[in-house]
Simulated scan of single mutants.
Amino acid sequence: MKRALIIRHVPYEGVAGYRAPIEAAGYDVDRIDVSDPAFSALDLREPDLLIMMGGPMGVYEQDRHPWITCQLRRLRQRLEAERPTLGVCFGAQMIAAALGSDVYAGPVKEVGFHPVTIHPNAAASPLQHLAEVPVLHWHGDTFALPEGTELLASSHIYDHQAFRRGPNLLALQFHAEMGEDERFNAWIEEWPESVIEAGGTEADLREAHDRLGPQAVAAGRQMIAQWLAELPA
């Protein structure tokens, strides 16, 4: 069986709704936290599929989080080998940094449910399933588009919401995996100030999650299922 490895940067940011299509595609799913002593010894080129999830840290905070430097070095090796890799939010920013782009704090927080604009070049890509579907956004950092990649989607707040490089690399700034996972409550409890900074309220965000979350996750699962189906054999 093919092996998928999830890198979890904080316990409350897991693969969530994406687990179902990954398992349905025939992968045995494993997970490791960056806090695990075994993490520093892993060869990230080995898994058939690597999934890097989100986290509240910035790629540029390597003094506070020395594992970022270590992970970036091994991620570059994987990307050079063109091994299938998915990055979500902080994971997408790590991919951008590994490809040589700057990651930096943006001018505003983007927190809440709203759709992304799918660019014409991505009309038949896995992102097509998200057309006009509000998905969860929760970030304040952004990145320059890496050289040699293709921009797939933007939002009304941040231009760089999704990119790919060939069929094996997909980076997603937003969280289409979240909408049915109880860990959403931990996000609000951990970062209530982010909700306020983005101009929202906890009550409104919880209501939007309950109302829009299931549709977002369904679309996200279709997106991941298509991406996995289109990976080279």
Rank of each mutant, 00 (worst) to 15 (best):
K2Q: 11
R3C: 08
A4I: 07
L5N: 08
I7A: 04
I7H: 05
I7K: 08
R8Y: 01
R8T: 10
Y12K: 05
E13I: 03
R19Q: 14
R19H: 08
E23N: 00
A24W: 07
A25E: 10
G26I: 05
D28C: 04
D30Q: 12
R31Q: 15
D36P: 04
F39K: 07
S40E: 05
S40D: 09
L42E: 04
L42W: 02
L44F: 07
R45F: 01
R45N: 10
E46K: 13
E46P: 00
I51G: 09
M53V: 12
G54V: 02
G55Y: 08
G55T: 05
M57P: 05
M57W: 10
G58C: 07
Y60Q: 08
Y60H: 13
E61N: 08
Q62H: 15
Q62G: 14
D63Y: 05
D63M: 11
R64D: 14
H65A: 13
H65C: 12
I68W: 10
C70L: 14
C70P: 02
Q71T: 12
Q71S: 14
L72N: 14
L72S: 15
R76Q: 15
R76F: 09
Q77E: 15
R78S: 10
P84L: 09
T85M: 08
T85A: 08
G87C: 04
G87N: 04
F90T: 02
Q93A: 03
M94Q: 07
I95W: 00
A96W: 02
A98H: 01
A98R: 00
L99Y: 01
D102G: 00
Y104N: 03
P107F: 00
K109Q: 02
K109R: 09
E110Y: 09
V111W: 04
F113Y: 15
V116P: 06
H119K: 08
H119A: 07
H119F: 12
A122L: 13
A122Q: 09
A123E: 13
A123L: 12
S125W: 14
P126S: 10
Q128G: 06
Q128V: 11
A131C: 13
E132K: 15
E132V: 11
E132I: 12
W138A: 15
D141G: 15
A144N: 14
A144K: 14
E147F: 04
E147Q: 14
A153E: 09
S154K: 08
H156V: 05
D159R: 11
H160K: 13
A162G: 11
R164V: 04
G166K: 06
L169C: 05
L172D: 03
L172M: 08
F174Q: 11
H175L: 09
G179R: 00
D181W: 14
E182Q: 11
E182V: 07
R183Y: 14
F184S: 07
A186C: 04
I188F: 06
E190F: 03
W191P: 01
V195K: 09
I196Q: 13
A198F: 01
A198I: 10
G199Y: 02
T201C: 09
T201S: 10
E202W: 00
E207V: 01
A208M: 02
D210K: 07
G213V: 05
A216R: 00
A218M: 00
R221L: 03
Q222D: 02
Q222M: 12
I224W: 02
L228T: 04
E230M: 03
L231W: 04
P232L: 00
A233F: 03
